[in-house]
Simulated assay, not measured.
Amino acid sequence: MAGANSSGAHWSDQEIDLIVADYFAMLSMELAGQRFVKSHRNEALRRLVDRSHASIEFKHCNISAVLERLGLPTIQGYRPRANFQHALIEGVERYLGAAERPESLIEFDAGPSVRFADLPIMDAPPPHEDPNVSPPAALRRLLHRFDPAARDARNRKLGLEGEERAFHAERSRLALMGRDDLARKVRWVAREDGDGAGYDIHSYAPDGSERLLEVKTTLGHARTPFFLSSNELAFSQERPNEFRLLRIHDFARSPKAFELRSPLAAHVRLRPSVYQASF
């Protein structure tokens, strides 16, 4: 019978593979709005691994911590616990590496009720990590292989739905403030004119001043890193009074956002990631 093994004993690769797969199955169900009972899932897993109920719960929290670093959604109720072993990092890497497109493992359907709803604007998260402290080698490798910023940049569907959400939220905000005239003038520039303007949404403040929004969307948490093009950065410097970087996060579950104003370097650490080579 499972449960005889101590919670402090190292997990085998087979045990880790089983619990990681179970975690992703529950996460997919949760994001799809499907109900499941965690205790029942725990009991079923204990038939396969010789671990206690508490040990499995703790390991689920460790998996949440790894996915949080990857900028992925986590299961509600499994609060991230960061003291995970390298073997768990390798287990998550094996699971993600088995898919041709790892980002497709997190499926969701925003639907009209989500895309057209209001978008709560929260405070931007303050910096808290020491930039001189490097994560362990195994975690660095995982973050390099499944870079959250690169993943979100490849997910064009996610980007478009985030822009659409921002577009409707801006129009709704102005209408609620009695500025229907301005609401009608809000433009989804990236859709109507194409990329390259340095921003996605042309909106307004209630006094009629311009708000030029560059929208960055992620399924992950507020601190998930993102890509910023040289054109977007240059535009933020050319139009500092009007430019806003709108960071939408937790998009699959409960979308919310915060705004960053120019200079962006006052809010986030910027480092070059792509270089163009020419002759």
Rank of each mutant, 00 (worst) to 15 (best):
V114T: 15
K216E: 01
R79C: 03
L96P: 02
A149K: 06
L48F: 11
E129V: 06
G162R: 09
P131W: 06
G208Q: 14
V215T: 05
N5G: 15
F279G: 13
H168R: 07
M122H: 13
R51Y: 03
V37E: 10
M122F: 10
F226L: 09
I75R: 14
R47F: 03
A266K: 13
A117V: 00
D118G: 15
V186C: 07
M122Q: 12
D180R: 14
G194V: 11
R269Y: 02
I89Q: 00
A265Q: 14
I16W: 05
Y95P: 01
L31E: 07
K185R: 15
S28A: 14
R223G: 01
R261Q: 04
I89A: 01
K157Q: 14
K185L: 15
A252E: 02
S273C: 11
L158M: 12
E259K: 11
G71N: 06
F116E: 08
K38L: 01
L245V: 11
R41P: 00
E163Y: 10
D13Q: 13
E103Y: 08
L27I: 08
K157N: 04
E43H: 06
V274G: 01
M26T: 11
R156N: 03
A153M: 07
E107I: 03
D181S: 11
R173H: 10
E129D: 03
P263G: 09
G33V: 08
L142I: 02
D207W: 13
P125R: 04
H144N: 07
G33M: 12
S278L: 10
H40W: 05
S203K: 06
L160Y: 12
R101E: 04
M26H: 05
K38C: 02
S134H: 08
S262R: 10
R261N: 04
L174V: 07
M26C: 15
R211A: 03
R115P: 00
Q14D: 12
R269Q: 06
F36H: 12
H168W: 13
S55Y: 02
D123E: 15
F243C: 04
H10W: 11
E164G: 09
A150V: 10
E107C: 04
P80G: 09
A153W: 13
F251N: 04
L246C: 10
R239N: 08
E214P: 07
D50M: 04
P120W: 10
Y275D: 01
H10T: 09
W11N: 05
R145G: 00
G71A: 05
N231Y: 08
S28E: 02
G111S: 08
P126F: 03
L142D: 04
A21D: 14
I56H: 08
H144I: 05
R140L: 09
A183V: 11
E164M: 08
I106M: 01
P120K: 10
I75H: 09
D200C: 07
F279R: 15
D193Q: 15
S229A: 02
P136H: 00
A25D: 10
R211W: 04
L158H: 12
N5A: 13
S113I: 01
S273N: 03
A110S: 15
E238M: 09
A65G: 02
S55P: 13
H86I: 05
I201D: 02
R81M: 11
R211Q: 14
E43Y: 11
R187H: 03
A32R: 14
